[in-house]
Simulated assay, not measured.
Amino acid sequence: MVLTILKVYFVCTVILMMVYAVRHAIFSYNRMFGRQRMYYSDIFDSDMPSITVLIPMHNEEKVLTYVLDALLACNYDRDRLEIIPINDNSSDRTAEMLEEYHSRYPFIRPLHRFEGERGKPAGLNEAMRLARGDIIIVFDADYRPGKDLLTSLALAFQDPEVGAVMGRVIPYNVDTNTLTRLLNVERSGGYQADQQARYNLRTVPQYGGTVGGFRKAFLLETGGFNTRVLAEDTELTYRLYTHGWKVIYANSAECYEEVPETWEVRGRQVRRWSSGHNNVMFRYFFRVLFSKYMSVREKLDGMLLLLVYA
């Protein structure tokens, strides 16, 4: 009996791996030889939406100047721009440094959190209730956006079907060691191949939690981020699709990040992602399967995406 169970398990595992191999082969072929779906980069509209940039921070005194200075160099109309750094229980000079920026740039409005529930989802929920912009764009504190990035991301929301948009992440510490070089390959495959191919094929591009934006009204109307879900970005992706919205991928909207430089840090990162992603899988698998808003193609890719960590 045990031997039979192991054989069945082995056969099912092989079949599943073959399904994912075919899936990735289709994505790679589409990216190399298929017709590439264009982004909204040729749109020009003098009436751009008002945006609020949220930056969750915890003890980020060493890196916060990079992201804030990069955002200040962006070419977005400052009358339509608000930046809210979220100081979440920092014990270093993060709060002091943010107040220095606020004194020089009034549209940088720090939120200091020393009470209540901790964590990124809780901080984003509190900041959204204070935000003045119609569109929320999120960056992690160690990211460095290019000067055209805010405009590129905001353009997608001229389309009334778009609920969220995701840009492309590029490591800037690639040459540190073997791990960072491997993660650069992973990022290239995940964004340049998978995300762009899913966008081309009109399946399920994924909002990634940073270097992306979403409509504030939708999230507030549906209860904000669930603080019990670690992968709040994946949860938002599927919440949007199961409510009839679309997620758009902007390959030309580039932002630069510092990837993990040790295997220990990378291991913690993957464990956190897998835990959060599998939580979303249990919550949304059948919602996706029976959704009246998603096409058969979207459902198939959506379920395979939900199962990647499982």
Rank of each mutant, 00 (worst) to 15 (best):
R31P: 07
R31S: 15
R31D: 11
R31L: 04
R31K: 15
R31C: 12
R31M: 12
M32P: 00
M32I: 14
M32W: 13
F33R: 01
F33C: 10
F33N: 00
F33A: 12
F33S: 02
G34Y: 06
G34S: 08
G34F: 07
G34E: 05
G34K: 00
R35K: 08
R35C: 11
Q36F: 00
Q36L: 05
R37G: 02
R37V: 12
R37F: 08
M38S: 11
M38F: 08
M38D: 00
M38H: 14
Y39Q: 09
Y39S: 01
Y39L: 14
Y40C: 05
Y40W: 13
Y40R: 14
Y40E: 02
Y40H: 02
S41D: 14
S41W: 04
S41E: 11
S41Q: 15
D42C: 08
D42G: 10
D42I: 08
D42V: 12
D42N: 09
D42F: 14
I43C: 06
F44Y: 10
F44A: 04
F44Q: 15
F44W: 09
D45F: 11
D45E: 12
D45L: 13
D45I: 11
D45P: 00
D45R: 15
D45Y: 00
D45N: 11
S46T: 14
S46C: 12
D47W: 03
D47V: 09
D47R: 00
M48K: 05
M48P: 00
M48D: 03
S50I: 02
I51S: 00
I51E: 02
I51W: 11
I51C: 01
T52H: 06
T52N: 12
T52C: 04
V53T: 12
V53H: 09
L54R: 06
L54I: 06
L54P: 00
I55D: 01
I55S: 02
P56Y: 08
P56C: 04
M57G: 01
M57R: 06
M57W: 04
H58W: 03
H58C: 05
N59E: 07
N59F: 07
E60M: 01
E60Q: 11
E61F: 07
E61S: 10
K62S: 14
V63M: 03
V63H: 04
V63K: 02
L64K: 05
L64E: 03
